[in-house]
């Protein structure tokens, strides 16, 4: 096997990993702070893709307007997320987790139908922005500029989050909310605002992931359910609620999928699922997660 081929396979896995990280980090963040497992996260991702398509139609396909459209889609989903948290989810915090799960699952069905009614059932497509249309030759491997952008975007977002969470006062409050919400609210912080804010940030990431994936995939009904399964695998491997765990989980997922097809050509998804199963047995709280008390 040529080294350039292995390098290409590695880069392919890395691109997939960074896409997954964008989406799974939002899921993990929401769980980490709100303790809500948001099934509808995949629906937010799908709606992000549809919104991006819609905005691209307005600003003109194949222009740099793509960036505006992607950002607009992500913000739109953040607002949607904020509304869902504020108006609906908020009433379920005191209830059993099962109710929250059922509620977010109902959202999956509703949002899926909304997408179908609005954009139909056909396949939709968005082109790469002209600035990232080309490819470059990296050590004998052709790497599309767009993939390179995604590979760089992942760690950038991870670093921004790390910085905000660890080094700013906002981050301190968020971390405190994750640790002990009652204590924080008795100290006078507005926990409700923190929750809404975090849900919006998580939704923003889902929407951004959906918008940015459109140049590399067709937009079809059903992409919501496909992605949520993968995002769950990532956070389970990395540790639910752990930010760097999600990053690590995504990296592992991407590489196992990429190199898995060389070993088990027809069972690459099996390799990832098997890995998840092993981790669930040996270390149920994930690689970098902490055991729940």
């Amino acid at each position: 096997m040529e080294p350039s081929f292995l390098f290409g396979q590695f880069l392919g896995g890395l691109t997939a990993a960074m896409f997954l990280f964008l989406i799974a980090s939002g899921l993990s963040l929401i769980f980490g702070v709100l303790r809500v497992l948001n099934f509808a996260h995949g629906s937010f991702y799908m709606l992000g893709a549809y919104l991006a398509f819609q905005f691209v139609q307005w600003v003109g396909p194949r222009t740099e307007g793509f960036w505006l459209a992607a950002l607009g889609a992500a913000c739109g989903i953040a607002v949607l997320g904020g509304l869902v948290e504020r108006l609906l989810l908020r009433h379920l915090y005191g209830r059993e987790e099962l109710y929250q799960l059922l509620f977010t699952y109902a959202l999956v069905l509703i949002l899926g139908d909304v997408a179908k009614i609005t954009w139909g059932t056909g396949q939709l497509s968005v082109s790469r922005p002209p600035s990232l249309e080309g490819s470059l030759n990296l050590l004998g491997v052709i790497v599309p500029h767009y993939n390179l952008f995604i590979i760089l975007l992942g760690p950038t977002i991870a670093l921004i989050f790390w910085f905000v969470l660890q080094r700013t006062s906002v981050g301190r409050i968020v971390r405190a909310a994750a640790q002990d919400r009652e204590m924080l609210s008795s100290l006078g912080a507005n926990v409700g605002m923190v929750y809404t804010g975090m849900f919006m940030v998580g939704s923003f990431l889902a929407g951004l992931g959906g918008a940015l994936v459109t140049p590399t995939q067709s937009i079809v009904p059903g992409m919501d359910v496909a992605i949520i399964v993968e995002a769950f695998i990532v956070v389970v491997i990395g540790g639910l609620g752990s930010f760097w765990g999600t990053f690590l989980g995504a990296l592992i997922f991407g590489q196992v999928l990429s190199f898995g097809i060389l070993i088990f050509p027809r069972f690459s998804i099996f390799a990832v699922s098997a890995l998840m199963a092993v981790i669930l047995i040996v270390r149920p709280w994930g690689l970098l997660g902490r055991p729940l008390r």
Binding site: F5, G12, M223, L257, S258, F259, G260, I261, L262
Partner: peptide, 13 residues
């Protein structure tokens, strides 16, 4: 499948 990249690379090789 949502990501064909590994299959594409493997085939090109």
């Amino acid at each position: 499948e949502a990501d064909y990249t590994p299959f594409i690379n493997a085939q090109m090789a």
